[in-house]
Design a protein around this nucleic acid. Structure first.
Lengths: 339, 339
DNA sequence: CGAGTGGGTGACAACGTTTGCATCATACGG
DNA sequence: CCGTATGATGCAAACGTTGTCACCCACTCG
């Protein structure tokens, strides 16, 4: 193993100079710096992370906690976060909690001491989670706790756009098929849609209860949607939309003619199913990148100044409407007058 | 921060005893062990990983290199690997190389010194990659290099099952729509199908060239498949199958009546599209778990014995055929006699 | 009853880095 | 030409853990 000592000997300087030349280049004369750099490159020196961590207290690695890596939503966030961490020269420990709050708390407890900060994505037990971190830098994704930096998508704006789209098509009664009861995202989306509808007096929103955020959830919701008399529906995510479409078809109803469907997330199933789904797209990769950026900012900022450096809250990420074939004007057939 | 010293003082023993009581319980008297354990728990002692790594040389973390986390295939493998690593009490650094061979080599170079071993999943540059690791434990997934432990799925058996299924339905001419040219998986699947067909003298396989392993690839392949005169087709993966079905439909052909389609992977799109795809399922999560198990085995085995402990090659994971609605007997319409 | 044995424990060195402090040389102002 | 300020460098002490070695005691066997 090549150590600072080897580099120092080869460059004819002391180990302190080597360390400084690599970590704090401005503190060393440029000639020396170059000599050290060359020697390091030549010997293939790679600083021992463990030693640096031990001495300096910071680890050069961050943590990311997600409920389910197999869910393309979180996979995309993880990809973005990983990418950005790499660009910052840091590693990323990814932990999949399998949606288990206990596992989540445990993961954080294990992660906290060996990382410089943790990104919590859609935490299932934010309260306990935050307790386990005692003051270590943390960034929340899809969650909100007073005083804790967070990164989020502009759900409100997205829902606004979805509703405008449906209204422009001529829909006046729109159902919302919600996700899990305790989901923060669900609350935001639901509220966004209701809020958007309040702006118009010719559109009303029917809120439908909690459903599993999967295909089965959509299947379970379909009959309620039909019974609600809505001509259009916005779902918690794309999978729910897929299940909804599936069940509607089984009942002989046609999407979009009998019912317009808007999904959420634009996960890649949205474009694959029949009909391709109109959906709300969030740049998840970017969400992950942002989260890491904020973490880096609060981690280094907090350290260098000593005092609390309140990293300014970033503006929420744009949510855009992707129009495909699952939305259309409502047909005014026999049931047209029932509303 | 609570250190061994604090625990030692509290338990009235020396730091060595504390270290042993926690790491090598059998080497310490049970009464002392209990006392130490209790003191540690009471103080909330958490060993400093960095210090342990620095001193002991092993890091308690593994690395996983995947080409694309957003691909559900790799996401599933990553999930399994992460899960198993956690069960082993280790962390997992996941690096997404974005299919870039350079990034892959760099990732490994960065990962190698700070982990106890690395899992390379579908490496894009296995040769360079392995060079970068100089002798550190490594396990390959979906790849094969002489002398390097690997974990793989039983592609041969899977293809055998797919072909038997199609033959039983009455197909005699089966096309294979291949994936990327340099893909190891593609070579295995292709060879598996050809090999299976060789067992029967009433079935022949038409191999079709390299296609992108995505929806577009399938769309591009569709016309060639039709022209080939095959009545059934097996694709490199599910996405290709989806693209294929899409283009066939656009041409007014029906799946499964005009052409039976078998996908690969049973990624979750397979059951969502219309018609739901018959496909070959691999338990990817298990694949990831196995990879980590083998890594742990070769990492600890190699260390404890000193000599090379050739971890026995694990049997390939079962690949099972999931029959849905994209396969059916060929119809003997006008073109029935052409073959 | 003494020597040998071995389990249990403590003292201490090392792991490779960062960093506060001391040192040295150089340049500048008086 | 000397004193001081300043910038560049070296020395050495940590960081918290593991593991080697030596030690002590109790027990056993001759």
């Amino acid at each position: 193993m090549v150590t600072v000592h080897d580099v120092a000997r080869s460059a004819g300087v002391s180990i302190s100079t080597v360390s400084r030349a690599l970590a704090a280049p401005e503190k060393v004369a440029s000639a020396t710096r170059e000599r050290v750099r060359r020697a390091a490159a030549e010997l293939g020196y790679r600083p021992n992370r463990a030693a640096a961590v031990l001495r300096a207290g910071r680890s050069g690695a961050y943590g990311l906690v997600v409920p389910d890596l197999a869910n393309p939503y979180f996979a995309a966030v993880a990809k973005g976060a990983q990418e950005r961490a790499r660009e910052h020269g840091a590693g990323l420990f990814i932990v999949d909690t399998d949606e288990d709050p206990d596992l989540e708390a445990e993961a954080i407890r294990a992660l906290a001491p060996q990382t410089d900060g943790v990104v919590l994505c859609s935490p299932r037990a934010a309260d306990r989670a935050l307790g386990a971190l005692d003051g270590r830098p943390v960034v929340l994704v899809n969650h909100d706790v007073a005083g804790v930096p967070a990164v989020e998508a502009d759900h409100r704006g997205g829902m606004q756009r979805a509703l405008e789209h449906l209204r422009a098509l001529g829909h006046h009664r729109v159902a919302y098929v919600g996700g899990p009861e305790r989901s923060w995202s669900d609350r935001r989306r639901r509220a966004g849609l209701v809020e958007a509808s309040a702006r118009y007096d010719d559109v009303e929103v029917v809120e439908l209860g909690a459903f599993r955020p999967r295909v089965e959830g959509g299947q379970a919701a379909a009959d309620l949607v039909v019974a609600s008399g809505a001509t259009a529906v916005v779902t918690f995510n794309d999978l729910v939309a897929v299940g909804l479409v599936d069940r509607l078809r089984a009942r002989g109803l046609d999407v979009p003619h009998d019912l317009s469907v808007v999904g959420c997330d634009d996960s890649y199933v949205a474009s694959l199913v029949t009909p391709p789904l109109t959906t709300l797209r969030v740049d998840l990769r970017r969400l992950g990148r942002h989260a890491v950026d904020r973490l880096v900012a609060s981690a280094s900022g907090g350290r260098s100044t000593g005092a609390e450096t309140p990293v300014p809250d970033a503006p929420p990420l744009d949510v855009e409407l992707v129009v495909r074939s699952s939305t259309a004007p409502p047909v005014r057939h026999s049931s047209g007058g029932t509303l």
